[in-house]
Design a protein around this nucleic acid. Structure first.
Length: 290
DNA sequence: GCGTCCAGGTCTACC
DNA sequence: GGTAGACCTGGACGC
């Protein structure tokens, strides 16, 4: 079943800047089509896999969805992945008064694309650790292709915890090419599938940021970077989620190309308080939108 | 084509 | 708490 409808997004939302805010649009099931500036994706609903395609159209989004579910469910997922209901008022107040960051306010940036589920973001975060972006794409692509279920149009969704727990550690090594992460991914899938861990609960957790980070870091394969990256996707921006790319960008933009300590980077963004993780990301990706 | 080196983030053992 | 080495893959490079 295919349906088309629109979602009001208002004049202060930029579909393009949300969809291409970071590399997630490049990881399946997401796909960004540059020719018609559309983002497509897929998710698992009650009665099977739903695929969707979103385009920006002024103060509306045009959505095409295939599969058996309601317009409301698809709308909810689209709003979730594009961060449409995130309140960035405080952040924009700060970027507006910061000459170098004013572009974020003017372009309505700062909405970091996320997956339909915390589970998917968690697994993808682990797949970004200790490897090139090319390998991340390969691992995530293999997960979707070899373990994901298809919708009526043949488009596959990211595999559920159950689907990922149904194969062996060797499958992750040989087929997914996850290397030493294989045991981590299998163990994580098994823990979530059996109900011992519920990543979705982190979305509305009342835990202080430090405690929530500790909780997330209990998962094998998740260290400071991966935990802070996931926290950003949960709407908690206290951590910088420093990786080699972010550090190298900072050195060039703010330290004359010379290496410096992480503490210096942290001091640079400390004025943004609880928004510092979003501030560094916007600052380092400004060139993407020029 | 083959072998070697390197980058990447986290875990574990050790101090 | 801090540090060193191992983990594994793919790309770059030299031969």
């Amino acid at each position: 079943m295919k349906r088309e409808f629109t979602i009001d997004c208002g004049p202060d939302f930029s579909f393009f800047h949300a969809a291409k805010s970071h590399g997630w649009y490049d990881l399946p099931p997401f796909k960004f089509d540059d020719d018609d500036a559309s983002l497509s994706g897929a998710f698992i609903a009650e009665r099977g896999v739903i695929s969707f395609c979103v385009r920006g159209a002024g103060d509306k989004l045009k959505v095409t969805a295939t599969g058996q579910t309601s317009e409301e469910v698809v709308t909810q997922v689209v709003k979730h992945v594009l961060r449409m209901e995130d309140d960035l008022t405080d952040f924009y107040t700060q970027t507006r008064s910061d000459g170098a960051m004013n572009w974020v306010t003017e372009l309505n940036g700062g909405r970091l694309l996320r997956s339909p589920t915390v589970w998917e973001d968690l697994v993808k975060s682990i797949c970004t650790t200790n490897c090139s972006w090319g390998l991340t794409r390969k691992m995530v692509g293999n997960l979707v292709e070899k373990l994901g279920s298809s919708g009526s149009d043949g488009i596959k969704a990211f595999p559920s915890p159950g689907e990922m727990a149904s194969v062996s550690v060797d499958f992750y090594k040989d087929e997914i090419r996850a290397g030493y992460r294989s045991a981590y991914l299998f163990e994580l899938a098994d823990t979530v599938a059996s109900g011992k861990l519920d990543p979705a609960s982190w979305m509305h957790s009342n835990l202080p940021i430090a405690d929530l980070k500790k909780e997330i870091k209990k998962i094998k394969g998740v260290g400071d970077y991966a935990a802070e990256n996931l926290l950003k996707l949960l709407g908690r921006y206290d951590g910088l989620a420093l990786d080699s790319w972010l550090r190298s960008q900072f050195y060039v933009r703010h330290n004359g190309g010379q290496k410096c300590s992480d503490k210096k980077i942290e001091r640079h963004y400390s004025r943004y308080g609880a928004w510092r993780g979003l501030a560094i990301w916007c600052d380092m990706t400004e060139d993407w939108f020029k």
